[in-house]
Design a protein around this nucleic acid. Structure first.
Length: 262
DNA sequence: TTGATTGTTACCGG
DNA sequence: TCCGGTAACAATCA
């Protein structure tokens, strides 16, 4: 589930439900007892997403920092309080709803200085209005690393996950092995703009939609994609090549996305 | 029971 | 400083 759109969607939803409210915070498995005790009873001042990082800000200055990693899940439940389902690390109880966080890779309390360091470490987020895209472009244009790797490096730019990586590069006819420094500024502008548009659509529909004119109704996996996990390129009908980049699946059309000269 | 999976961090060496 | 490689970790589902 966790690509950037999932986290931004959760942040928007949870802000609406929890902002301004005093929360009761528990640790059903006991694996976050200290953090829950430290935060519980304070007022939630805001909920924000930075790339795939979700943060709940409290009036004490403390921040609850969540990163779902590959397997984490967020569930919103209505009160009265139902039993936890699965490995609920932390439960945030508001006035009408609660939020359960299952299996996050990161679940920690940060003080203001630690929170500042976190924000500094995360690259500009294509979904945030305050994102400094130049910071990402400068870094990419100097890098020998392939753009496929760079797009998944959350300290370069944040919010793009594995499926969007494949889809964005296909839509822009760019091979993932092309070095960042061999791309043009115009290429990067197109990538950024496309990524932002697709993620906005993802937030809106709670699904990964990268095909134009997506038909109504939901895909089987809440996806409507062009070549991720497909056999044929929808543009040229040629075969889709499967790659592995950083041990993650990637898909390329050899015709529409010419490989760089070796 | 097994394997795959929409992710990240730490550490080391070149 | 940057880059590649490796390992560790997380929970659920088919």
């Amino acid at each position: 589930m966790p690509e950037g759109h999932t986290i931004h969607r959760a942040a928007n939803d949870h802000r609406r439900l929890l902002k301004g409210r005093v929360l009761r915070i528990t640790s059903p498995q006991g694996r976050f007892s200290d953090g829950a005790a430290r935060l519980s009873g304070s007022r939630c001042d805001d909920v924000e997403a930075f790339g795939k990082h979700l943060v709940y800000r409290f009036d004490t200055g403390d921040v609850l920092h969540i990163h779902l990693g590959l397997f984490g899940r967020i569930r919103k439940r209505k009160l009265p309080e139902p039993d936890p389902v699965g490995a609920v690390r932390v439960r945030l109880v508001g006035d009408t709803h609660l939020v359960d966080i299952n299996g996050p890779a990161i679940c920690e309390v940060l003080d203001p200085a630690q929170f500042a360091r976190l924000k500094d470490r995360i690259g500009p987020d294509v979904l945030r209005a305050d994102a400094d895209r130049e910071r990402a472009f400068t870094r990419i244009l100097k890098s020998r690393t392939g753009i496929g790797r760079l797009l998944m490096n959350q300290s370069v730019l944040s919010g793009i996950g594995n499926i969007y990586r494949t889809e964005i590069l296909w839509r822009q006819n760019i091979h993932p092995d092309r070095a960042g420094k061999d791309l043009s500024r115009a290429d990067l502008e197109r990538i950024w703009t496309d990524a932002a548009a697709l993620l906005v659509l993802g937030v809106k529909h709670n699904a990964i939609i990268t095909v134009d004119d997506a038909p109504a109704g939901k895909g089987r996996y809440r996806e409507r994609v062009n070549i991720f996990n497909k056999d044929r390129c929808p543009a040229c009908a040629g075969p889709v090549t499967r790659l592995e980049i950083d041990n993650r699946r990637a898909f390329v059309c050899a015709v529409c996305q010419p490989a760089p000269r070796p």
